[in-house]
C-alpha cells in the first residue's frame, strides 16, 4: 500500500512500487483521463505533472512518485473554472480524436509555467508529444493564445 497525492487528494493505493504511475492512476486511483499510448516514454499521451514538472507517467515508477504532488488532466481546472490552456483548446477546437490531448495539454501547461510567453522555438522544444490526427497547427495557436490570457 502506498500513498499518492493526486490533484490535492491523498489516495491509499494497493500497488507494487515498481508499477508505472500511469497504470496506478488509471486502474487504482481511477483517473482515466491520462492515456496509455506507447509505454516507452515516446508519445507523451500519459503526461502528468509531478511536483510541477511534466513527466511521462508510463515510465515513472509509483515508488518514485510517493510524497510528491501529482497533477493529472482531471486536476487542472480550479473547481468549475477551466485552466486557461483548456479554454484556449476549446476556443481553437484543437482536439480531433482527442486521445493524445490530455498529455498535450499537460505539456502545454508546464511550458507556460516555465515560459509565460513562449516563442515558436520554445513550443517546438517543449511539446514533443505525438498526435496522429495532426492537430499541431491548432496546438501552436492555442498555446500562443493561452499565453495572452
Amino acid at each position: 500500500m502506498v500513498e499518492l497525492k493526486v490533484n490535492g487528494r491523498a489516495y491509499q493505493v494497493d500497488v507494487e512500487p515498481e508499477t508505472p504511475l500511469l497504470w496506478a492512476l488509471r486502474e487504482n486511483v481511477g483517473l482515466t483521463g491520462t492515456k496509455y499510448g506507447c509505454g516507452v516514454a515516446q508519445c507523451g499521451a500519459c503526461t502528468v505533472h509531478v511536483d510541477g514538472q511534466p513527466v511521462r507517467s508510463c515510465s515513472l515508477q509509483v515508488g518514485d512518485a510517493v510524497g510528491k504532488q501529482i497533477t493529472t488532466i482531471e486536476g487542472l481546472a480550479a473547481g468549475a473554472t477551466m485552466h486557461k490552456v483548456q479554454k484556449a483548446w476549446i476556443e481553437h477546437d484543437v482536439p480531433q480524436c482527442g486521445f493524445c490531448q490530455s498529455g498535450m495539454i499537460m505539456a502545454a501547461v508546464a511550458l507556460l509555467k516555465e515560459k509565460p510567453k513562449p516563442t515558436d522555438a520554445d513550443i517546438d522544444a517543449a511539446i514533443t508529444n505525438i498526435c496522429r490526427c495532426g492537430t499541431f497547427q491548432q496546438v501552436r495557436a492555442a498555446i500562443h493564445d493561452a499565453a495572452k490570457a
Binding site: 483521463g33 488532466i73 482531471e74 487542472l76 483548456q86 476549446i90 484543437v94 482536439p95 482527442g98
Partner: peptide
C-alpha cells in the same frame, strides 16, 4: 465548433 471538444480537454471523454 465541434460537439465533442470539451470532454476531450478535461479527461472526461
Amino acid at each position: 465548433k465541434r460537439l465533442d471538444t470539451v470532454e476531450k480537454t478535461n479527461g472526461k471523454m
